[in-house]
Computed example of a mutant assay.
Amino acid sequence: MKLKVTVNGVPYGIDVEVEEPEAPALGPIIIGGSGTSSIVVPTTASVSGASANAVTAPLAGSVARVLVEEGQEITAGTVLLVLEAMKMETEITAPRDGKVSRILVEKGTAVQAGEGLVEVD
């Protein structure tokens, strides 16, 4: 490759060789697996199951306050409890009118996303 460079007003012609980088060689390609068998070990879920009537945690955190009691009549939008995650508080509200049949957590309980918090009938 020929380049023209000007230094202090004086033009110079320079020949430059450019080497193409070599592509890294690929290792052996195995189609259909490595030939070894692996044993699948069953796992257990870390989140307890929730009934169809349960209001579930939208995020992981800890229960800061429980604001309802079992047997209490509630309307849609009633704040049931408050979750705290990373110094932020999130109000968990009732999705519909009903009655609190069971409270599944208490203040200080650590919960995962999807875990049942309160059952509403």
Rank of each mutant, 00 (worst) to 15 (best):
I31K: 04
K107N: 09
E89Q: 11
R96I: 09
Q112E: 13
D15Y: 05
V79W: 02
T44A: 01
G33I: 05
Q72A: 04
A85V: 05
N53L: 12
E115M: 11
T93P: 03
V118Y: 01
T56F: 04
K87M: 07
E106N: 13
E70H: 05
T56A: 08
G9K: 09
T109A: 09
V5L: 05
V40R: 06
V7W: 06
L117P: 00
S38I: 11
E19C: 04
D121R: 02
M88L: 07
S37A: 09
P24L: 14
I29W: 09
G35L: 06
G33A: 07
R65F: 04
A57T: 01
S38R: 09
S37G: 15
A57R: 00
P28Q: 03
A64N: 07
G77L: 06
G27C: 07
G27K: 12
E106A: 08
V79M: 02
G71W: 10
R96N: 03
V105C: 04
K99P: 05
K87A: 04
E20D: 02
K87S: 05
E70Y: 12
Q72T: 06
G108L: 09
V41H: 12
A50E: 02
G27P: 13
T78S: 11
I92Q: 08
E22K: 15
D121W: 00
T43W: 12
G71I: 14
A45I: 03
D15L: 10
V18H: 01
V41N: 00
V120A: 05
K2N: 13
K4R: 15
G49Q: 10
Y12E: 02
L81F: 09
S51C: 00
V100R: 08
E22G: 07
V18S: 10
T90W: 01
T109P: 04
V18M: 09
T109S: 08
L81Y: 12
A45H: 12
T6W: 01
L80K: 10
E69V: 07
I30C: 11
S38H: 03
E73N: 06
S48A: 13
A85S: 13
V63Y: 15
G49N: 08
V47E: 00
T6S: 14
G13S: 14
P28W: 03
V18T: 10
Q112L: 04
D121A: 07
I39A: 06
A25L: 15
V66M: 09
L26P: 07
V55F: 06
T75C: 00
G33M: 05
A45P: 11
K2I: 09
S37C: 03
A52L: 13
E119Y: 10
T78Q: 04
K99D: 06
Q112Y: 08
R96T: 00
P21S: 02
